[in-house]
């Protein structure tokens, strides 16, 4: 099991745990995620969103495709009633994670906290789907 922790000074902290070593998943695997929220005692959370998505990164606009989305508004499932949460989803067959030269495809889990008012806090955690090795610059090929 791998763990990722994000910390923003005097801001919420969301710790996400993946169910696979090195966050490495296969297509059609079931992705299971557990998370823990800390550091938002002073603010009231009105909703939490879970999402699993792929996005592109590189020299182009960022495109994204949301594979799984869930919005939790039940007060019993969010702080201060509970600071932990979990969700799972079977992964699709594509796209696979890809480290290209000007196009990269990444999968990630996002947990977004909505505070009273118009503010939200999002935490994003990247994981791998498939085993495609990175491409390299054409000039680097001898």
């Amino acid at each position: 099991m791998t763990t990722a922790t994000d910390r923003v000074p005097s801001k919420p902290k969301i710790e996400v745990q993946f169910d696979r070593p090195h966050r490495q998943h296969e297509p059609r695997d079931t992705l299971a995620v557990r998370y823990r929220i800390e550091g938002c005692d002073g603010e009231r959370i009105c909703a939490i969103e879970h999402s699993v998505l792929w996005y592109t990164e590189g020299k182009g606009e960022e495109d994204l495709g949301v594979h799984f989305f869930q919005r939790v508004t039940d007060r019993a499932m969010m702080p201060p009633a509970t600071t932990a949460g979990a969700f799972s989803t079977p992964l699709p067959q594509s796209p696979l994670s890809y480290e290209g030269v000007i196009v990269k495809v990444r999968w990630c889990v996002r947990v977004r906290l909505f505070f009273d008012g118009s503010r939200d806090f999002v935490s994003e955690h990247v994981f791998n789907v498939g085993h495609i090795p990175p491409a390299r610059m054409p000039s680097a090929r001898a």
Binding site: A4, D6, V8, K11, I14, V16, E57, E62, R106, S118, R119, D120, F121, V122, S123, E124, H125, V126
Partner: peptide, 17 residues
Amino acid sequence: HESADGFSYVGAPERNL
């Protein structure tokens, strides 16, 4: 890039990660 987080605001066209 392994992880990122930050605040954003409802209606903001930019993702603020």
